[in-house]
Amino acid sequence: MTDALVRVFDTEENDRTLRFGDRRISITPAVEQAEGGPLSAYSARFGRGERADLPAPYEEVWVVVHGRIRIRSAGSEVEIGPGGFLHVPEDSPGEVEALEDTALVCVSVPAH
């Protein structure tokens, strides 16, 4: 049996937070590829009205902690709010838009 270490994270920004220029979008890594696991996890924050392209070269599951987002992809549109889950397939085309100030928890496979 290995000595697994259970760690706790939250969605608050910290010294590892990455910001995207003057936009109100940030990502805070929690679990990264360098740690040797099969997945990555991070929190993301979007200020109301911010938009970002959706494609990523890995699969992700997003959970909205607070706020509300709209996803446009492949001719469809969905909105999700607190407690909602979203599966984002690898290389999905589309756009995410924050309808309110929003915090997400995201898990990616494989790790990056």
Rank of each mutant, 00 (worst) to 15 (best):
D3Q: 10
A4C: 07
L5W: 07
L5H: 11
V8N: 14
F9G: 06
F9L: 06
D10Q: 14
D10L: 14
D10W: 10
E12T: 15
E12P: 05
E13A: 15
D15S: 14
R16Y: 12
R16M: 12
R19K: 15
R19D: 14
R19F: 14
F20W: 08
G21M: 03
G21Q: 02
D22L: 15
D22P: 07
R23D: 04
R23C: 07
R24W: 05
R24I: 08
I25M: 03
S26D: 04
S26Y: 01
T28A: 11
P29K: 11
V31G: 07
E32K: 08
E32S: 08
Q33E: 13
A34L: 09
A34Y: 07
E35A: 06
G36T: 05
G36A: 08
G37Q: 06
G37D: 02
P38Q: 09
L39P: 01
A41E: 03
Y42M: 10
A44N: 02
R45H: 14
R45W: 08
R45S: 08
F46L: 14
R48F: 07
G49S: 11
E50A: 00
E50W: 06
A52R: 06
D53M: 04
D53K: 09
L54Y: 00
P55E: 04
A56I: 00
A56G: 00
P57V: 01
E59W: 01
E60T: 05
E60W: 01
E60S: 07
E60D: 04
W62Y: 14
V63P: 02
H66Q: 13
I69P: 01
I69K: 02
I69W: 02
R70P: 10
R70Y: 11
I71T: 13
I71E: 08
A74V: 02
A74E: 01
A74W: 00
A74S: 01
G75H: 03
G75A: 07
S76G: 09
E77S: 13
V78R: 11
E79T: 12
I80L: 15
I80R: 15
P82T: 14
P82M: 11
P82R: 15
G83R: 14
G83L: 12
G83A: 14
G84M: 04
G84V: 06
L86W: 13
L86S: 09
H87M: 02
H87S: 01
V88Q: 00
E90P: 00
D91W: 00
S92T: 05
P93M: 07
P93V: 10
G94C: 06
G94Y: 00
V96C: 04
L99E: 10
L99M: 12
E100D: 12
D101V: 11
L104A: 05
L104D: 03
V105N: 08
V105C: 01
V107N: 08
S108P: 01
S108C: 04
V109W: 04
P110G: 09
P110V: 06
P110Q: 06
